[in-house]
Computed example of a mutant assay.
Amino acid sequence: MAASKQGPGTARGAIRTQIDENLKRVYQEVLTEEVPDRFKDLLDQLKARESGDAKEGGQ
């Protein structure tokens, strides 16, 4: 009876390991991608707006 319990449990463990490895691989690929220029432009606009708001609030 114990041997039959190990079969499915071992299969689940192997599946989880494979899923973990695939997720790590995909996540690592995303980390190495460049940020799109449009997104960089939007971030620059946000920073400029925030610094403008900070200057106005301090006066």
Rank of each mutant, 00 (worst) to 15 (best):
M1S: 09
M1Q: 04
M1T: 06
A2S: 11
A2G: 13
A3R: 13
A3Q: 13
S4G: 00
K5C: 01
K5N: 02
K5W: 12
Q6S: 10
G7E: 12
G7A: 08
G7Q: 05
P8Q: 05
P8V: 10
P8T: 04
P8I: 06
G9D: 11
G9M: 13
G9N: 12
T10G: 11
T10A: 14
T10M: 08
T10S: 12
A11D: 04
A11M: 02
A11K: 07
A11S: 03
A11W: 00
R12Y: 09
R12G: 05
A14F: 00
A14D: 11
I15S: 03
R16D: 09
R16Q: 08
R16Y: 07
R16K: 10
R16L: 09
T17S: 07
T17Q: 10
Q18H: 03
I19D: 01
I19T: 03
I19M: 03
D20L: 05
D20Q: 11
D20E: 09
D20K: 06
D20T: 03
E21H: 10
L23E: 09
L23R: 04
L23G: 00
L23M: 06
K24H: 05
K24G: 03
K24Y: 04
K24N: 12
K24R: 14
R25Q: 07
R25I: 04
Y27R: 13
Y27Q: 14
Q28C: 00
Q28T: 11
Q28P: 01
E29A: 11
V30F: 03
L31K: 15
L31N: 10
E34W: 01
E34D: 15
E34T: 09
P36C: 04
P36N: 03
R38L: 06
F39I: 14
F39C: 02
F39R: 07
F39P: 00
D41R: 07
D41A: 14
D41S: 12
L42I: 08
L43W: 06
L43F: 09
L43E: 13
D44N: 10
D44G: 05
D44V: 06
D44M: 05
D44L: 03
D44H: 02
Q45M: 10
Q45H: 04
Q45Y: 09
L46W: 05
L46N: 07
L46K: 08
A48P: 01
R49G: 07
R49P: 01
R49D: 08
R49H: 14
R49F: 12
E50M: 15
E50Y: 10
E50T: 10
S51Y: 05
S51Q: 15
G52L: 08
G52V: 05
D53W: 13
A54H: 11
A54N: 06
A54T: 12
K55L: 15
K55C: 01
K55R: 14
K55E: 15
E56H: 08
E56C: 02
G57H: 06
G57N: 11
G58K: 12
G58F: 13
G58M: 08
Q59I: 12
Q59E: 13
Q59C: 04
Q59L: 12
Q59P: 10
